[in-house]
């Protein structure tokens, strides 16, 4: 059976990236440590996925210092929100069609 794959976004094929976007869709800003804890990822793993999403322009990150500790917060960009919505719609459409 041939199914049209139009609408699926390659950037969100990975579960971790899907998770990062899901969290940022419902929270304005989330810091690195909180995100890591919710997604149950390691530092390096999360950093590489957030970097990938940032390069695509889907999320923006802001680095600052709280005292002497570096603190990175993330938020979804308009472009990222739009892309995620499209991906979500495609997923839902796909599941419906398969029924």
């Amino acid at each position: 059976m041939k199914v049209s794959l139009i609408g699926f976004n390659k950037a969100f094929e990975n579960r971790a990236r899907l998770g990062i976007m899901s969290v940022l869709m419902v929270n304005d800003t989330v810091d690195f440590t909180t995100l890591k804890q919710w997604l149950e990822l390691t530092d390096g793993n999360l950093a590489s996925h957030t970097r990938a999403l940032e390069e695509l322009g889907y999320i923006a990150c802001e680095k600052r210092f709280v005292g002497r500790k570096p603190n990175t917060t993330f938020r979804a960009t308009l472009q990222g929100r739009e892309a995620f919505r499209e991906h979500l719609a495609a997923l839902e459409h796909f599941v419906k069609e398969q029924k």
């Binding site: 998770g19 899901s22 419902v26 796909f94």
Partner: peptide, 16 residues
């Protein structure tokens, strides 16, 4: 696809 939708739902719920 269903698992993806499920994980989106769980993450949104857990984080909010």
């Amino acid at each position: 696809a269903i698992q993806d939708l499920e994980s989106i739902r769980t993450m949104m719920e857990r984080s909010s």
